[in-house]
């Protein structure tokens, strides 16, 4: 349906997107994962014809959308990373405006507005100005506007960024429904691994303007099939402990965060004893430890040596 080849974008000297190739089949739900500044938004802008690329092509059903954006635009619903709305206007007024921009009018428009408001659960607040909404509600209306014209492809750029878990689940559930029940093709951008794991059939992982891995969730996880993760929670972190862990044989990677450490270790290694020894030596109190099978998060960690979020 959509095919992206060697897409690149430079802003002056800065390379935002280096070389991205990907595809999107009808009815699929595809995730685009990457840390801040990876180039996700830039890639999405180019795919949705809003930004001319420096190089590469985007094709929709074989036609170059950069030359003929008219083909793709009407069937595309784009949810920008920002709240792209008139915040001083009400949800209703926004939806009415954007509906009309797409040429919907009269009863059809009215029905569509109510149907969509229902979908995002904002019927009661429809007359209130968007600026009076909570973050989660703004996100939902931001999505609703993109659905007004019944798009076939929905491109979402971090639609859940910075909101409470409840709103987040609501949105995830909604997107899943749109994909499963209405057959909407979804390209979902996020730096939340769990969202993508829950929602997407296939995943692209992006870093520094490049796709560093892609495939189904299982395929990606199989990269780590020989590894597992040990999470250690400590009272306080110490570099001495970290050094000891790093030099321990069988530990492939050590990552530190506020709560403690994540170790990526070769599968089957029995390292718990050693870990406790090191803790004792470094005078560290371990308050929790557990071993888990790899997640996409771990895949990312493995591929880049960094965590998705700081």
């Amino acid at each position: 349906m959509i095919e992206v080849k060697n897409l690149g974008k430079n802003f002056k000297k800065k390379i935002a997107v280096d070389d991205v190739s990907m595809y999107l089949d009808e009815g699929e739900s595809v995730g685009l994962l990457g840390p801040n500044g990876a180039g996700k938004s830039t890639t999405i802008s180019m795919i949705s014809t809003l930004l001319p690329p420096t190089k590469g092509t985007v094709k929709y059903n074989g036609k170059n959308v950069l030359k003929e954006p008219e083909e793709l635009r009407p069937i595309l619903g784009v949810v920008p990373q920002e709240i792209a709305l008139y915040e001083e206007l009400s949800a209703y007024e926004n939806m009415s405006f954007f509906g009309k921009v797409y040429g919907i009018s009269g009863k059809k428009l009215e029905d569509k507005i109510q149907e969509t408001l229902d979908l995002v659960g904002l019927k009661e607040r429809q007359k209130d100005a968007v600026e009076t909404y909570s973050g989660g509600m703004k996100r939902r209306i931001n999505i609703a506007v993109a659905l007004m014209h019944d798009p076939e492809i929905l491109i979402m750029d971090e639609p859940t960024v910075g909101i409470d878990p409840q709103s987040r689940n609501y949105i995830l559930e909604m997107v899943r429904k749109l994909n499963r029940e209405r057959g909407l093709t979804v390209l979902y951008t996020s730096h939340y691994m769990e969202e993508v794991e829950k929602l997407c059939d296939r995943v692209y992982i992006m870093d520094h303007g490049q796709i560093i891995a892609s495939g189904t969730k299982e395929e990606l996880k199989s990269i780590l099939s020989n590894e597992e993760t040990i999470q250690i929670q400590v009272e306080e972190t110490k570099s001495e402990f970290r050094d000891l862990l790093s030099s321990q044989e069988g530990v492939n990677q050590v990552l530190e965060d506020e709560a403690g450490y994540n170790l990526i270790v070769s599968k089957g290694e029995q390292l718990l004893g050693e870990i406790f020894d090191h803790a004792k030596q470094a005078n560290i109190k371990i308050i929790g430890i557990h071993v888990k099978t790899p997640t996409l998060e771990d895949v990312f960690l493995h591929l880049t040596g960094r965590k998705l979020r700081d």
Binding site: T49, P74, V78, P80, A84, Y86, F98, V101
Partner: peptide, 13 residues
């Protein structure tokens, strides 16, 4: 700046 212009353009306006 608030990307509504982009949205308007996407509609084929």
């Amino acid at each position: 700046e608030q990307h509504v212009f982009g949205r308007i353009m996407l509609s084929g306006t």
